[in-house]
Design a protein around this nucleic acid. Structure first.
Length: 472
DNA sequence: TTTTGAGTTGTTCGA
DNA sequence: GTCGAACAACTCAAA
């Protein structure tokens, strides 16, 4: 009987999986394998929260496979060696896998493809890299023209959703390690790693009565409201298919009954296009992982004690500290918060974006090389967009605008819970008697600001001034 | 080949 | 309180 290896990497799902579908068309028997890459596990870009999410996702996938008469074969080691071993053990004739475009993944896959024949199908992107290009074939480096071209190529009506197969036949005699035990994530990490949960989130975001997608345009920036889909970890590991999400966004856009709902769906679809954009950028310009996309004249001031204060959420700016606590504790951070803390690190503290990028990768459950790198370089002013260097976030006014009552701050900084609204965004201005009254002494219970934003802003303007804006 | 218009997410200042 | 201008200069995309 013929058998095909389905090499799972970031497509941890049975529904709308083009790779699995192609494998099923190829052979009667499928060998679903995930290889825990020893080298990746040791990387400093790996964090335990994301690893836990992955392991939980594998467990969930295994249980879905078992319902269909199959099971997950889990191996650990070097991917090529493990695949080779599996080919010999099983006599599998084919390997099917979804491409992955980060520089490490490309090196790994190129290496594997030299020794083994792999059929690459599907994509973690909605439109795969290489497809959205200028008429002369060059890749876009500016989002707006990219998105125009993307929209002209995207045909939601051509996307036929592929339901999860009802049964999958898998050879009996193959060894598998069991999914490593991993401490459960804390309760408030509300990301259950299952395909079912991903589908439920998409459905509730777009379909329920008064779905959040309809108010996304106005609520997405509010840190105190749950206005976003929080689908990022699921997209990261392919617990849901990106093209399915995009098709859903498109339907929501078509079905919207008022301008507000239409706008919300449009902006949300745009966010998905941003995800594709950065996947494409990293594919075409892999060096951005290490180097500035553009090279401004920045002399970083990487002071370790400043970086540490940022990491620990002890900068004295509640909007920054709340966000950093949210990241470290929950493994997720609101998009608005990501910009605030990134601007603070690269502009107020003049610390190299690479340090922030690495810290994010260590803590984000949705941590993805493409999106994370793109976001950091954008904020640092070194990225694809010619963002004006003087666009420096004011941590207090951002907080006033996006968390007006300090709900988000109080959620993540318990020390500030009793601080009156008037001082919640700038507690260092709180008079002493109020500090005593609410039992929050600045400098004792909560730090003084580690920099004066106005001074830091001037320094950043000087440091970023006279940019030499040449591509690397 | 040359020219032209545009480029996610902001802040401050002064009228 | 509101509003428009200034904060630069450059690259990219498209005509």
């Amino acid at each position: 009987m013929s058998s095909t290896i389905w090499w799972i990497r970031r497509d941890l799902r049975l529904a709308d999986n083009q790779t699995l579908q192609a494998a099923l068309q190829q052979s009667e028997q499928i060998i679903p394998v995930f290889i825990l890459d020893t080298k990746l596990l040791a990387s400093r870009y790996i964090g335990e929260k994301r690893l836990a999410f992955l392991l939980h996702g594998l467990r969930s996938l295994d249980s879905e496979l078992r319902k269909r008469g199959s099971r997950l074969i889990l191996r650990q080691g070097n991917p090529l060696e493990e695949l080779n071993r599996l080919v010999i053990e099983s006599g599998a004739q084919n390997i099917y896998a979804e491409p992955d475009y980060s520089p490490y993944a490309v090196r790994r896959d190129t290496h594997v493809a030299k020794k083994l024949r792999v059929a690459w199908t599907g994509s973690p992107a909605i439109l795969p890299p290489g497809l959205v290009t200028k008429p002369d074939g060059d890749p876009y480096t500016i989002f707006t023209p990219f998105s125009r071209a993307w929209k002209s190529l995207f045909s939601p009506e051509k996307i036929a959703f592929i339901p999860a197969p009802e049964s999958i036949s898998t050879p009996e005699n193959l060894a598998s390690m069991s999914v490593p035990e991993y401490p459960a994530l804390p309760d408030y990490v509300s990301f259950e790693a299952s395909e079912e949960e991903a589908a439920r989130r998409l459905n509730s975001f777009t379909q329920e009565i008064n779905p959040k997608i309809e108010s996304y345009a106005t609520n997405r920036d509010r840190q105190d409201l749950n206005g976003t889909s929080q689908l990022s970890p699921y997209l990261r590991f392919g617990l849901i298919s990106a093209r399915q999400v995009a098709a859903t966004a498109w339907s929501a856009y078509q079905a919207a009954e008022n301008p507000e709902g239409r706008k919300g769906a449009e902006i949300w679809l745009n966010e998905l296009i941003w995800r594709d954009f950065y996947i494409h950028i990293l594919y075409h310009y892999p060096q951005v992982r290490r180097e500035n996309f553009r090279l401004p004249h920045v002399k970083w001031d990487n002071r370790p004690e400043m970086f540490q204060a940022w990491c620990e959420g002890k900068t004295g700016y509640p909007s920054v500290d709340a966000a950093m606590h949210q990241l470290v504790i929950s493994g997720w951070m609101h998009n608005r918060s990501r910009m605030i803390v990134a601007s603070f690190l690269t502009k107020d503290l003049l610390i190299d974006w690479r340090l922030g990028e690495e810290f994010f990768m260590q803590h984000l459950i949705d941590g993805d090389p493409a999106a994370n790198n793109g976001g950091w370089q954008w904020t640092a002013g070194t990225g694809t967009d010619a963002a004006p260097y003087f666009r420096i976030f004011n941590p207090v006014s951002q907080s006033l605008r996006h968390d007006p009552n300090g709900v988000y701050i109080r959620q993540w900084i318990p020390e500030l819970r009793s601080v009156p609204d008037k001082y919640i965004h700038n507690p260092w201005k709180m008079p002493l008697e109020i500090q005593k009254q609410v039992r929050c002494m600045i400098g004792v219970d909560y730090p003084f600001p580690i920099v004066d934003h106005n001074i830091a802003r001037d320094r950043a303007l000087r440091a970023y001034g006279k940019p030499v804006n040449r591509p690397v």
